[in-house]
């Protein structure tokens, strides 16, 4: 009969009317991202050997770096590294061709910025990298080329986050830190380091506010270094 097709269509829509809703309410529920998701490109500054292969591989000239000849070791060292996110195509060619694989894609996909200058991310060589080579540097992302007098919105937001984390750390360090290291006693050791050296505390907090993965790596690095030092002391002691 003429109308059966129409009725079948209505039956389907009615079925879905009462079925479960499948949309993700974005700001409240975060989407479940697979492990290989390509969000924001970032560099681990200390592993970079300033070879420049990535700048040549990138089809869209997103990456550029300044390097300088190191006086005593005669090796090239990286001064600053610029990632211009507006031209990045997320094609992964730079990540694959980087010999010391220090370029990675994070899971952060919220890359919109209020003004265009913030899209260009510039990593500077932190001063302390020159004294103690093994130390880890904190990349300050969101660096606007011309230092604007008042803090941009992102910096303000980060400031508030860091204060909140700092208070949480003082109140109950182990619980907060356990999220960043694997085992309970690691968190205990990390808590002792934080108490001992305030500058490390600020660095860790800044990282926590900025990027979870790096914070986790840095925390683990602190703990391992501390354990090695303790071991040397115990061997020295015997």
């Amino acid at each position: 009969m003429y109308g059966t097709g129409l009725l079948k269509g209505m039956a389907i829509t009615l079925k879905y009317f009462f079925s479960k809703k499948i949309t993700i309410q974005y700001p409240e529920e975060m989407p479940k991202l697979p492990e290989r998701f390509r969000g924001r490109l970032y560099i681990e500054f200390e592993k970079c050997i300033a070879c420049g292969i990535c700048t040549k591989t990138c089809p869209n000239d997103v990456l550029s770096l300044e390097d300088a000849r190191d006086e005593n070791t005669k090796k090239k060292k990286l001064i600053s590294y610029t990632i211009d996110h507006q031209y990045c195509m997320f094609c992964n060619l730079c990540v694959e061709n980087c010999p010391s694989n220090c370029l990675h894609f994070s899971h952060d996909f919220e890359m919109s910025r209020y003004n265009r200058a913030d899209i260009k991310e510039v990593y500077h060589r932190p001063p302390e990298m020159d004294q103690v080579p093994a130390q880890v540097s904190a990349p300050d992302s969101g660096e606007a080329p011309e230092p604007s007098s008042d803090l941009t919105e992102d910096a303000l937001k980060k400031q508030k986050k860091m204060e909140a984390l700092m208070t949480a750390l003082d109140k109950n360090p182990v619980k907060v830190l356990s999220r960043y290291v694997d085992s309970e006693d690691d968190a205990q050791i990390l808590a002792e380091i934080i108490q001992a050296d305030r500058s490390k505390a600020e660095k860790l907090v800044e990282l926590m506010a900025d990027d979870q993965e790096k914070a986790r790596k840095v925390a683990v690095a602190f703990v391992n270094k501390e354990k090695k030092q303790r071991q040397r002391q115990t061997e020295g002691g015997e």
């Binding site: 991202l33 290989r36 998701f37 195509m89 997320f90 992964n92 060619l93």
Partner: peptide
């Protein structure tokens, strides 16, 4: 799209 995302990291323009 989810399958493409889990293999290549990008949903649509997956190089």
């Amino acid at each position: 799209m989810d399958m493409f995302e889990m293999t290549s990291g990008q949903r649509l323009l997956a190089a």
